[in-house]
């Protein structure tokens, strides 16, 4: 396959995610407008920060009059999981020029990570695979920024849109990513433990419970994997269809 074919395949595989990201972006734009950000501040946040769940939480913090330190600390903690994504995909950026690593890092969201990581699991690393990554990432980025803009504009026309529940789109997207991964005992244990700890720690400040839940789930998965005599971590190419 050529560069263009990799790029186009990335665009194509991103399409299902767009169905989940567009409503989420629209609801962000609506809430940001209601929360007192100007149109360009709302779109600028999507353009420069590009981190859906952190943006949502920060909008509600701004609305509650939280200080800059709380807002930046919250951003740090809510986005800590990106360090894990960065570590997971790090072997795939070996040998890529600096400008590629900078760009792909900037675009490393939950959704991009999920699609790209699956591509590498199924196809392994090929010399032009970063063009596939570029196709996925640029498509999701364009969707997030443009749907945020639509949300600000629509929010002015339909002020009650914030209560429609469009944020369910994010839950459906993450469910669609996780469920097909639950194909062996360690993965199932990781999900059960992470879910349970998240419920026990939901009231912790600054979303610290999210990291507690993530690390508990990871520890449960590793513990079970090490107890099993044979590795059950093989990935067959038809596990998930985009």
């Amino acid at each position: 396959m050529s560069r263009d074919q990799f790029f186009v395949r990335g665009l194509r595989d991103s399409v299902p995610m767009l169905v989940g990201i567009a409503p989420f972006g629209i609801i962000f734009g609506t809430l940001a407008g209601v929360g007192g950000l100007t149109l360009w501040q709302a779109v600028g946040m999507s353009m420069f920060v590009y981190a859906g769940s952190a943006q949502f939480i920060v909008i509600s913090l701004m609305g509650a009059g939280a200080g800059a330190v709380v807002i930046l600390l919250t951003t740090f903690i809510v986005n800590l999981r990106h360090v894990l994504y960065s570590a997971t995909l790090q072997p795939q950026v070996q040998g890529l020029p600096q400008r590629w690593r900078l760009l792909l890092a900037f675009w490393l969201t939950d959704e991009t990570f999920a699609i790209v990581q699956r591509h590498y699991l199924v196809h392994g690393r090929t010399p032009l695979a970063h063009w596939y990554w570029l196709g996925v990432a640029s498509s999701l980025y364009a969707c997030w920024v443009s749907s945020s803009l639509v949300g600000v504009l629509f929010g002015q026309a339909f002020p009650d849109m914030a209560s429609w529940g469009l944020e369910f789109a994010m839950l459906a997207t993450f469910i669609g990513i996780v469920v097909p991964l639950l194909r062996n005992q360690p993965q199932i244990a990781a999900a059960l433990v992470a879910g349970a700890v998240a419920l026990l720690t939901w009231s912790w400040p600054y979303k610290l419970g999210l990291m507690a839940a993530a690390f508990s789930g990871i520890a449960a998965g590793v513990f079970l994997e090490r107890r099993q005599p044979e590795r059950q971590d093989d990935v067959t190419p038809n596990e998930v269809r985009p």
């Binding site: 769940s53 999981r81 894990l84 994504y85 570590a87 997971t88 790090q90 950026v93 070996q94 040998g95 890529l96 690593r101 939950d110 990570f113 999920a114 990581q117 944020e167 994010m170 839950l171 993450f174 469910i175 990513i177 996780v178 991964l181 639950l182 360690p186 993965q187 990781a190 999900a191 433990v193 992470a194 879910g195 349970a196 700890v197 998240a198 419920l199 939901w202 419970g209 999210l210 839940a213 993530a214 690390f215 508990s216 789930g217 990871i218 520890a219 449960a220 998965g221 590793v222 994997e225 090490r226 971590d233």
Partner: peptide, 28 residues
């Protein structure tokens, strides 16, 4: 890019998507 992780860390990274996304979905 040339840093290599110890095996325990590499094993743990397999569970990152499952653990993080489930921890967002269940309370949601």
């Amino acid at each position: 890019p040339n840093l290599r992780f110890p095996p325990l860390v590499r094993q743990g990274l397999h569970y990152v998507p499952t653990a993080v996304l489930t921890a967002i979905v269940v309370p949601g």
